[in-house]
């Protein structure tokens, strides 16, 4: 029971934080300021977060985890291939993100850095990467067993998928189509293509080009 009310309090803090940002266009000046508007004890705040920045890093991660959670109850998700799972999670994430769009626009649109370089995104990045690495991608990519890929490991694949995701996130921030259907179309195209490209025979050629270019630059 205690656990549940704590969960509710952390949600309350997050919601209060988002409301504040949406209304004022900036973060609360201090933890004390946020706690006062939420009518909670500052000491209770530290049960959940160490500072304001941590709430900020918590939000995209929470959207991601909620998407995973709601899919984990869907039969079609559980029965689908790894590649289809990736697509479902992407659609699920942007579906959930709709509820936080104003906040996300304020925070991440028109930043000088791409979103994954922005501070406070490490925790989000880690969740997403963990998920991609947890997939049995070898079954999705039959040719992955080749020696080259063994060295690369699942991590390289996860990085590729993550960078696709970042690309789509940036697109979504600027998407003006109804129900963001252009983002949906982009997800479909980008991920289908990258699964096709992840065939090691193609990847080897890309790496070969990379090595060549790197060598030339070093000269």
């Amino acid at each position: 029971m205690v656990k549940k009310s704590e969960q509710l309090l952390s949600d309350k803090i997050v919601e209060g934080f988002i409301d504040h940002v949406n209304e004022n266009g900036e973060n609360p000046k201090s933890v004390a300021h946020l706690c006062k508007s939420l009518k909670i004890q500052e000491s209770d705040f530290y049960e959940h977060f160490s500072d304001i920045d941590q709430i900020e890093s918590h939000i995209p991660k929470k959207i991601w985890e909620n998407a995973l959670y709601s899919l984990s109850e869907q039969e079609f998700y559980l029965n689908s291939s790894e590649q289809e799972k990736v697509l479902s999670v992407m659609y699920g994430f942007f579906e959930n993100a709709k509820s936080y769009r104003s906040y996300l626009l304020l925070k991440y649109k028109n930043q000088n850095n791409p979103i994954d370089k922005i501070k406070n995104m490490d925790r989000f990045r880690k969740s997403v990467m963990d998920y991609f690495q947890s997939l049995n991608l070898e079954s999705a990519l039959p040719n992955l067993g080749m020696p080259m890929m063994d060295k690369m490991g699942d991590k390289a694949v996860a990085i590729t998928l993550y960078s696709n995701f970042v690309f789509i996130f940036n697109f979504w921030l600027n998407d003006k189509s109804s129900q963001f259907e252009k983002t949906d179309a982009l997800i479909e195209k980008v991920f289908t293509l990258s699964f096709d490209l992840m065939d090691p025979t193609v990847l080897n050629k890309v790496l070969d080009l990379g090595k060549f270019l790197l060598g030339e630059i070093r000269k």
Partner: peptide, 13 residues
């Protein structure tokens, strides 16, 4: 053709 997940998403949308 649309992938299974996109079909689901488009239908739900």
């Amino acid at each position: 053709p649309m992938s299974g997940p996109l079909v689901m998403k488009a239908f739900k949308n």
